[in-house]
Design a binder for these strands. Structure first.
Lengths: 133, 133
DNA sequence: CGAAACTGTATACTGTGCATGGACAGTGTA
DNA sequence: TACACTGTCCATGCACAGTATACAGTTTCG
């Protein structure tokens, strides 16, 4: 049996909150269809143990995702993925912000020594995958 | 005279700390050569007023950038950009993290309604610019 | 039916990171 | 030598992330 859960990577040193890292990671899996409507998520305690954190932190992340419309969260039952109504096109401001964060992210990598070529490869690779879906 | 300072955009609603947003924004300008060695940065108070925050928050950002080797910070004098020794190639773990953050960032945008096409355009656009430099 | 083992929830507490304001100290200039 | 600038240091307040503990639903199985 292969462990599929190792997908989630948490960095406790990171300045971004752990619960937010969980939200970001799971959201990516949800957007990409790796987690589909009907699927049950690991219980807050199980995932917490796996990540080496407290279950309440995982619970907070689940609540956030439920807020965004990804999860059905009911007392006593496992959190399950639900069909989510697609949003309308992102606003101009949001796209602007995306451009900025993208720019800052690659700049951070260049500052750390990543070559422009390597970054171009990553950007084009992701664009490729995205266009192919 | 055109205002070149409007480059920095701060979002007080954002979960990422204001001083970190400043660091990220300035670092991008530094990496891209928009800010060159010898250039003097605006004083902490001036920039603070411009952004509508406290000067100490800007000071913290400057200290962070000095720590990274971008700035020469001396008591009583303006902060100035300094020649920075390039880093060696980024580690495999760092590139892995870059890939993850890139994936999560685009997923977040898709969740907010951005079309795959629009995101592909942004990614390819940045790759283009990066390859051309 | 009922107990046990699971699920998520609510609440209070603690530590910490961040933004702030004010006093301080170094630098340049009129 | 004043004075207006520069960045630094320090104490305060506050919001929030993470924790522990007690609680309340649901499912499983004897």
């Amino acid at each position: 049996m292969t462990r599929k859960k190792t997908k989630l990577q948490i960095d406790v040193e990171s300045p971004v909150a752990v619960y937010r890292q969980i939200v970001d990671g799971l959201r990516a899996s949800l957007v990409e269809g790796e987690l589909r409507p009907g699927d049950a998520l690991p219980s807050v305690r199980r995932l917490a143990i796996e990540l080496g954190i407290t279950f309440n932190t995982v619970a907070l992340a689940y609540r956030e995702l439920a807020e965004e419309g990804w999860l059905d969260l009911r007392h006593g039952r496992r959190a399950t993925v639900v069909e989510r109504t697609a949003r309308e096109g992102a606003s101009r401001e949001r796209m602007e912000m995306f451009r900025r964060r993208l720019r800052e992210l690659t700049a951070e990598m260049r500052a750390e020594g990543a070559s422009a070529g390597a970054l171009v490869r990553e950007l084009r690779g992701l664009a490729e995958r995205l266009a192919g879906s």
